[in-house]
Amino acid sequence: MQLQINATRMSLLSYKKKLKLAKKGHKLLKDKLEELVRRFIKLVREYQKKRGDIESSLRIAYKKMFHAQINMSRLDFNEFIYSSPVEAELKVGSRKIMNIDVPELEVEIKGNIFSYSLSQTNVHLDDAIADYINIVKKMLELSSIEKAIYLLAAEIEKTRRRVNSLEYILIPNFEDAIKFINMKLDERSRSELTQLMKVKEMIVKKREENEYS
């Protein structure tokens, strides 16, 4: 890329300063990127483990609930669902991973869920409900990890773009500019030198002519 450059010592100094800054920034950003990727991989591993765990336990819970359902009348089951006094209260906090706000979720199950009629329900329902409550807590953990993964991925992309633009555009540009100015300055000093030599030659010649005449 051709830059508009003033070939002066002042601008040479300023370009050198800029280059130094850009290199420093590049190194810092690269370190940040590495750390982000490391955390990202750690989170993904955790996510995969938890995900498999939850999926299998959720399937077991579905089966238990199904057992409960077929041993009850539809009406009783619906009554149990609609009359449940339980409320899921969500607590939202946040923690920071590398300066990124990541949500942290916690759910509190309020109210006693085991307040249904014992004569109209069966033991499978107790079992299934206990499973569901356990799983819900884990599901929320999974949600926050998933969100953290997405947010980290976005940050990684952003940082990578910055690192690349520094590495492949900004730093080479500055280096080119410095090289260009150096060449220009050298050229100027050479031409000044030859000028001086020429002038000296002329002066010497004139003086000699004067002496002999």
Binding site: Y62, M65, I81, Y82, S84, A88, V136
Partner: peptide, 11 residues
């Protein structure tokens, strides 16, 4: 079928 029981938990 999947989500109905979650109503009992307050979702």
């Amino acid at each position: 079928e999947t989500i109905f029981p979650f109503q009992a938990i307050g979702f």
